[in-house]
Design a protein around this nucleic acid. Sequence first.
DNA 1: CCCCAGGCGTCCA
DNA 2: TGGACGCATGGG
Length: 213
Amino acid sequence: MSKRSGAALRAVYRKLHRAFGPQGWWPGQTPFEVAIGAILTQNTAWTNVERAITRIKSARSLSPAALDRLPLARLQEMIRPAGYFRVKAHRLKNFLVFLKKRGGLAALKKLALAPCRQALLSVNGIGPETADSILLYALGKPVFVIDAYTKRIFSRHGLARADADYDELQRFFMDHLPRRADFFNEYHALIVRLGKEYCRKTRPRCAQCPLYE
DNA sequence: CCCCAGGCGTCCA
DNA sequence: TGGACGCATGGG
C-alpha cells in the first residue's frame, strides 16, 4: 500500500509535468515578498493579490521595516484589492511583530523544519497552509503544501480520502515521496495549475483533465 | 443574479 | 474535535 501510493503520486507528478512543464514558483522576488503573498492569497484569487502587492511596491513599502512603519489604516487601503483587507492587515502586522522578535526570515531559516513550522503557526493569522507555503517557498524547507486544490484533485481521482484533514493529507504525501524542497515546490505548483484550469468546484473542464491521459 | 478564489480564527455543541 | 460562520474584492 505504501509502495503503491508512492508510485501513484509519482505518476501524477509525471503527468502534470509533461502537461504543463516547470512552473517556476513562487511568483515573488524575495523571501519576504513570498511570505506577504502567502498571507494575502488566503482564500483569494492570485490576480487580486498581485494588485495589492503592486500597490505596496509602488509605495516603496515592501520591506519589513517599511510595512511596520505603515499605519494600520494605510495598510488596509493598500491591500484592499486582495479582499478581507481588515483581517489581512492585522495578520500582516502580526507577522511583522513576529519577524522582528525572531530576527527576520534569515534567522528563521536557520531553524530546523519542525520548530520553524511551530513558530510560524504561533502567529495569529498563519495557519497550516500559509505556514507551509512560507516554509517551502520563502525558506526552502522540504514540506508539502496542502491546499483546497490538493484535496479536491486527489479525492476526485480516488487517491485520497475526501474527509482527510490537513495533517493526514500532508503525511500521505510526505511519507510516500522523496523529501526534497525543489520537488515539493514543483509538485504543489503543478497541482495549483491543474486545479485552476481543470478542477474547479463546478467542474467546467473536469473531463479534459490531463490526469486521465 | 449567481458562484468562486492557492484560509483562518472564533464560537459553540 | 469538528462544524457553522464571518471576513471582501474582482472575475466569470
